[in-house]
Design a binder for these strands. Structure first.
Length: 200
DNA sequence: ATATCGATTATCT
DNA sequence: GATAATCGATATG
């Protein structure tokens, strides 16, 4: 799709406010995209694509609009969408969602038992590992799917919400190229990861 | 409130 | 053998 056939920085901005929809094992879930990070190609030392094409990162080098799911720290999965045309690496990491639908299913998938207070809802899909666990996204099942069509079981929709105000910060959890402003968030949104800022 | 640490494995050097 | 696009638990102010 044309939307993803662009620089990851532009795709990242465009994704904020859209809706990630998931349907798996008979459960429907959805969340508004409130936090993403752009990862570039060979010029970005923090990107998985930096060292060149490998079996693990091949989706990043493939056609745009497809899911790249990787396993990290022996514990967690993270979801990305590939950007730029076939042969050119780039992607956007989904870091946090504002839960919209299927909250009970997500809580169950996360192993949470408490009430869905505001504090509890933040534990559902705030954080890249959390949102994958809540939506039962794994590399074995969900890598290299077309995120533009519902048939994939994961796709990006647009509910016509007003364009959000966007803030830009350095990326989280990386050591290389840690200073570049490539993290994009919906300013002031409660479901962005990290400490509650109090302002904005 | 922030800081530090262990879990646990795919991937690459 | 080291590291990692994280999380949750524990310790300390």
């Amino acid at each position: 799709m044309e939307f993803y056939d662009r620089d990851p920085r532009l795709v990242a901005r465009g994704l904020l406010g859209k809706v990630l929809v998931r349907e798996a094992d008979g459960e429907g879930m959805a969340g508004r995209i409130v936090e993403v990070e752009a990862y570039l190609g060979s010029d970005d030392a923090a990107a998985h694509a930096a060292a060149g094409l490998t079996p693990r990162n091949r989706v990043l080098f493939g056609p745009p609009g497809r899911s790249y799911v990787y396993f990290i720290y022996g514990n967690h999965y993270c979801l990305n969408v590939s950007c730029l045309p076939d042969g050119v690496a780039g992607g956007v990491l989904f870091r946090a969602l504002e839960p919209l639908a299927g909250l009970e299913a997500m809580a169950r998938n996360r192993g949470l038992t408490g009430e869905l207070t505001e504090r509890g809802r933040r534990l559902l899909t705030t954080g890249p590992g959390r949102l994958c666990e809540a939506m039962k996204i794994t590399r074995a099942r969900d890598n290299d799917l077309d995120l533009t069509m519902p048939e994939s079981g994961i796709w990006i929709g647009d509910d016509g919400a007003r364009r959000p105000r966007i803030a830009v910060t350095p990326r989280i959890g990386i050591t290389k190229s840690a200073d570049h402003p490539l993290r994009y968030i919906i300013a002031g949104n409660e479901f962005v990861s990290g400490p509650r800022s109090r302002s904005q």
